[in-house]
Design a protein around this nucleic acid. Structure first.
Lengths: 232, 232
DNA sequence: TAAACCTAAATCTTCGAAAATCTGACCTAT
DNA sequence: ATAGGTCAGATTTTCGAAGATTTAGGTTTA
């Protein structure tokens, strides 16, 4: 793995986790010391992050962490619904036995991780959180993986990362989940996909993302939710 | 404008125009001499082109021009229809007087350019072609400019450039337009938008892009079309 | 013969200094 | 007071050499 790729992943994690705050200027000298690399891999990583909408830049005036707001969050969520419901319908139409099997497998892996963390009533470690996030991403990626369109998959992946930012804040504010049963939502999604019921699956996916968004709305307007907890 | 931006635009033109062929390896030493710049701006431009799907890269093995195929073309077209019909519906719902006015203005500019080039029965110069392309892009960008979603606009712009590649080949093969009246299609689109008839506008837009795709299908299977002409 | 192992050339990646540009403070003239 | 101009410091952008990796060809070995 090249240095540029390593820095890309580190920077991405630091932005998604909020260690680097929205709108914060990213000065090259500072990042150079922080990550211990030269200008070239830094610029390469920042350029790639820009196409993921995690950083912004103005020529000759440097890079900043992309702003985060409720409006941006809902734009990402609604665009993601548009892209992924289409991709899911295509996957359901085109997916073969192998796709179904991978789907069952990735939900199982997600469930295992979920259960382990639920049993363990101590606060989840950062590693466990990351593992859960990876399983979650894997399940949603598998759902649309048989759609046959590289572009839909690519857009969906970018939008996933954009929304990850907001989920992370919610996670660390220990937002109440409300009366949601996220595991059941995933299970219903799998059933609909295996039943090849595209309408039902698309509706479930849309609701899944909207519910997440509504839960995260409380991140922005604390009066709607319970008391805010500190992050980390 | 920085060197990296200049090289980005030059490289993009050379790929869209086919001067750099699909799958062609892009060796840095070669590009360095070709564009007269150092490694840094080259890499920056290539990285940006990668996020536009005009180049591909593998770490430590360099960059290549992205492949072009009928399948890729239709993927870009159908994804574009998904994105732009949504964005157009939103624009029609949200657009104000200013939007309508800009729309009328940009169609007029497109029509003027179109007429000038039609009157001039000599072969169009590269400059005229570029001007027409710019007007065309401007009209389609204006159509969706009031949608309120930066992400939809961003995706649409990237997909426009991806399809531009294929339109360029068609243009220079002097494909017969068939019984299409492209100017009328644009006019009908404007009417539907101003009438705030979202269903009609979305249907027209979809048909507009599909017809273009079907025309360009002949680029890949010459037996379907008339005799092929040389490019330039 | 085919596989594994070298070696040299080609190529990509990274570094830090140098060049170019921006920012803000200070000065001047109206 | 305000607009415009100038300069130093901070910052980004660019360059080419040096480092790292891949590729291709030839050699050895089983």
């Amino acid at each position: 793995m090249t240095l540029a790729e390593q820095v890309f992943h580190q920077l991405r994690r630091d932005i998604v986790s909020g260690k680097l705050k929205p709108m914060q200027p990213l000065r090259l000298d500072h990042l150079k010391k922080l990550y211990g690399v030269g200008f070239s891999p830094l610029r390469e990583a920042l350029n790639r992050l820009q196409s993921e909408r995690l950083v912004q830049s103005v020529a000759l005036r440097g890079f900043t962490v992309a702003p985060a707001s409720q409006r941006e969050m809902w734009d990402a969520i609604e665009t993601r619904i548009l892209i992924e419901t289409r991709a899911l319908r295509l996957s359901i139409a085109l997916g073969d036995d192998d796709w179904e099997s991978r789907l069952v497998g990735s939900l199982h892996a997600l469930t295992l991780q979920h259960k382990r963390m639920a049993d363990n009533n101590a606060a989840a470690s950062a590693d466990e959180d990351e593992a859960l996030e990876a399983r979650h991403q894997e399940f949603h990626a598998t759902l649309i993986s048989a759609c046959g369109s590289e572009r839909l998959i690519d857009f969906a992946q970018k939008l996933y990362i954009q929304t990850e930012r907001y989920r992370y804040s919610g996670l660390h504010q220990r937002l109440p989940v409300g009366d949601r049963d996220v595991r059941a939502e995933h299970g219903a999604l799998l059933s609909a996909a295996i039943d090849r019921d595209a309408d039902r699956a698309a509706a479930l996916l849309k609701r899944h993302y909207r519910l997440t968004g509504e839960m995260l709305d409380r991140t922005f307007d604390p009066s709607l939710g319970e008391k805010k907890a500190m992050s980390s």
